[in-house]
Amino acid sequence: MVRKLFPLALGLLVFFISFQWLNEEPVEDPRVLSTSETTRTQGVEVKKESIVTDQLEKAPVKQNYKPAVHASSEQYGITPDRIEIPTIDVDASIQALGYTPDGGMAVPKSLTDVGWFEPGTMPGNQGNSVIAGHVDGNSGPAVFYDLKDLSPGDEIHVYDENTKLTFEVSRIESYPYKNAPIREIFGPTNTRNLNLITCTGPYDDEASTYSERLAVFTVLTDRQEL
């Protein structure tokens, strides 16, 4: 009896362990809020010698110096209709979309189009404009499948009928779905940014969505009349 049960139990045990291991959740660190990275790039020596309490010492403080923008500075935002990312062979139509019934960001039903968050900033204007696209459909890759392969310095072009705007990738981050810094991606800023979003990380069957979101941050570098 035992001889037959032992291998059964062993099999069960291996199954459970390997299932847990294979299905492991991503670590939910708030990866955005570190001082160290930006501090290093600007060569700042951070001195911690005085009466800083523990709570404050561990506190996330992001160094974030940017020049302010003048009121009279030209606003040249466009209603974008096409996006082109040469590095990853993306050339897609843009739909202007708003909110989901829950107040989230809507995305196109189409797997080949991308969606611009229309209530937010127009690409080219001061602020964070946002474009999202699918990483995949039910059976295969979609428009932003290769977004993860972008690297800082890569160019993104956004068009309307008369204008071509060029943005340059500054950084790429991924965040847990439920704990992404919405305000950093969509909120106010002094610069003219375009941020691209798609899904990444392991698929979460229970929530019927990917467990992470990839955000590609880009900054306006050029504007051409066509």
């Binding site: 107040g103 989230g104 960001m105 995305v107 699918h134 995949d136 459909g137 295969g140 990917y210």
Partner: peptide
């Protein structure tokens, strides 16, 4: 928005 977009179906 209050939430990030749902940009994948898991295919």
């Amino acid at each position: 928005p209050t939430m990030m977009p749902a940009t994948g179906l898991g295919g």
